[in-house]
Amino acid sequence: MQNIRILLVDDHQMFRNALRSLLENTVNIEVVGETGDACEIVDLVRKTSADIVCMDIGMSGMNGIEATRKLIGACPTVKVIALSSYSEHKYVQDMMAAGASAYITKVEAADELLRAITAVRQNRKYLCPDVSDALIGAITQRHQNDTSSLTSRERQVLGLVADGNTSLVIADRLNIALSTVEVHRRNILRKLNLHNASELTRYVMSNDILTC
């Protein structure tokens, strides 16, 4: 199977490096080039015969949306995966309209980039959970709050909360800082679309969460 040829476009060198090391650890993926300047993208794609372009949006000079539009206009077969710090609806809409095949946020890149690559190789569109959650939320107002998106550590913390432990006790039990427990609690609230401690307590009681 031929390697998937990937081109990285981001004006942030360190992030490009991180992406490169992530992708180079993966079989069948080859990073054929990278640039911080979106203006040279068409030439670079033609020169490297890239299959997929990982495109940042907020770049100095030409932004990612404009560059995508130009690139798709020039090379319709190339796939663009938007890799952005923004998760706002408007950016997603514009980027997809410009011709991108996938949209993932940078913070989710570690988990989501490979999934996105797989999807676009199969000519599917792909949106990362952050983005799709927001879109679905806008449509349904109140989306489900299941625990599938929680990490195992977060499930651990949630179980301890359900048992009636205070953050101080949880920190002690898990041998982590109190502030880290608070961080986990905040992330849990966000992922479950809850807004405060009492909503969390109610959730725990009605969903019969057990200690992991």
Binding site: D11, M14, F15, S21, L22
Partner: peptide, 16 residues
Amino acid sequence: DRTSPNLAAIAINLKV
């Protein structure tokens, strides 16, 4: 444009 991508980069590196 800088701190967020840095954090993203750190997260990716940690995964690696």
